[in-house]
């Protein structure tokens, strides 16, 4: 069942699309905001609300990289792996995170605190390398800065 808050946010979108399925992506994002990820149950909840089949919702959900169809940690680290960051030392940053948290790309720490995901260009190439944790952008990274940044989310 969708919560009141979730429904409220989806309805907001429904008001501006000519067809209920038009709110599909917005609904996925809204539900993910509240539940952290999109479970099979969430797919079915959204499908029911938008008068879509679960298959139709899942077809959309699995297309987009920022819709998580697997559980993620409390904080999601989106590390930019695109070209400018790669030139500027993405590998070192990834290794530093890996060493600190013991996880690789696509993995979640055992305590469920962090999930590390690669992300295409964050659009801040002049301050590469960069990453985002939740909604915060961290730029001009060096491996040495990683510890301190991660600590803030513990």
């Amino acid at each position: 069942m969708l919560s009141h808050r979730e429904i409220e946010q989806i309805e907001h979108e429904l008001a501006i699309v000519p067809r209920r399925s038009g709110a599909c992506i917005e609904a996925l994002r809204a539900v993910q905001r509240h539940r952290g990820w999109i479970s099979d149950e969430a797919v079915r909840d959204i499908a029911r609300f938008l008068e879509m089949s679960p298959d139709e919702v899942d077809s959309v959900a699995t297309f987009y990289n920022l819709i998580y169809r697997k559980p993620v940690g409390r904080h999601v680290i989106l590390i930019c792996n695109s070209v400018s960051c790669w030139i500027m030392g993405y590998e070192g940053i990834r290794k530093a995170i890996g060493e600190k948290l013991g996880i690789g790309l696509g993995e979640t720490t055992k305590d469920g605190c962090f999930t590390l995901l690669p992300n295409p260009c964050l659009g801040t190439c002049d301050t590469a390398p960069a990453l985002m944790i939740d909604e915060d952008l961290h730029r001009d990274l060096t491996p040495g800065k990683i510890d301190g940044i991660l600590e803030r989310y513990r």
């Binding site: 298959d55 899942d58 077809s59």
Partner: peptide
């Protein structure tokens, strides 16, 4: 109930 899932060279045709 038959759809395309995922993308790139991972596109999958089947059911949810």
């Amino acid at each position: 109930d038959l759809q395309a899932f995922a993308s790139r060279d991972h596109v999958y045709f089947g059911r949810h």
